[in-house]
Nucleic acid binder design. Structure first.
Lengths: 166, 166
DNA sequence: TATTGTTATACTCTATAACTATA
DNA sequence: TATAGTTATAGAGTATAACAATA
């Protein structure tokens, strides 16, 4: 791929430029891969950062079910991420005394330190991805992406309903 | 996840709204999944559409290496996609007489028919994803995403160079 | 019975490296 | 020697389904 990287850096191939879906997919995977490689020095991956972010912003009574809902993944997928984080002493599982089925997740001090470092990396990445784009445009991109997210969720929901009806 | 889908449809969780990387990743995977599910009735997946699109737009002397370059994937990843397409009679591999290492890929008539159908699905999906967004904003989103793509490629390149230097 | 978390399993996508046949 | 394509293999990420403990 080395042969093409120079061209790729200068301009997107013309055929992709008019396909929003492809642009979104490519931008998503590229930025995730970049984030992954920069997170390596903290020995965590994007999914760990996602989980830690949610915990950081919802310090009270955060269960694995809640996490799965926030991240829109299956609860079973949360298990291994929390396992990793717990093994590394970044979070603790605590049985909820009020409902002993539940694990309440608590970020440790080391966890908070790592979150701070990871947030720095995330902010830096965002600066790099948005280089040359004025703040107004950045806000606009955010708004547009949230709009796409909403539309996509609606479309997905419509398909689910059509599927169960037909 | 059914319990959360209603909330998810109405508003993105607040913590993701200020993280461009997460928004990009989510929008990318969501739109790809949606595209995948709509392509199902043609019995192809997004990757097949990508390959067919490139072939459609570069009808002359398109090799697998060229494809890999356009799609920014490893040449080895192209093989199974072309296998699928050839098995279904949508493309043909033809040895380049001028350089017998090369396969020149040719879209069959059936392939062109499928491309037309798939393009319709892609256009419809784009309409759905962009619902409520005026044309001017859509162009802007495209421009911003291409900008992100360029920045990401540059950042990736910088890391590769730093890695091989340090 | 329903729900939380867990395990086992499988599937998709992609990358790496070793191989072949040509150049 | 280098390049085009292929194969085998492995890894990440995620989903599904069955299960245990608890409600």
């Amino acid at each position: 791929m080395a042969k093409n990287s120079e061209r790729d850096r200068d301009a997107a191939p013309p055929w992709i430029a008019d396909n929003i879906g492809f642009l979104l997919a490519k931008a998503g995977t590229l930025s995730t891969e970049l984030f992954r490689s920069r997170l390596e020095r903290l020995d965590v991956r994007p999914r760990h950062y996602s989980v830690l972010s949610v915990l950081h912003l919802h310090p009270e009574q955060c269960t694995q079910q809640f996490l799965a809902g926030c991240l829109e993944v299956e609860p079973s997928s949360v298990v291994s991420v929390v396992d990793d984080l717990e093994d590394r002493g970044l979070v603790e599982r605590r049985r909820d005394p009020g409902d002993r089925r539940r694990n309440v997740l608590v970020v440790t001090e080391r966890g908070e330190e790592l979150i701070a470092d990871a947030q720095e990396i995330a902010a830096e990445l965002e600066q790099d991805l948005m280089a040359g784009v004025p703040e107004r445009r950045r806000r606009e991109l955010r708004t547009l992406l949230i709009n796409v997210l909403g539309n996509a969720s609606r479309a997905e929901q419509a398909e689910v309903e059509a599927g169960s009806a037909g």
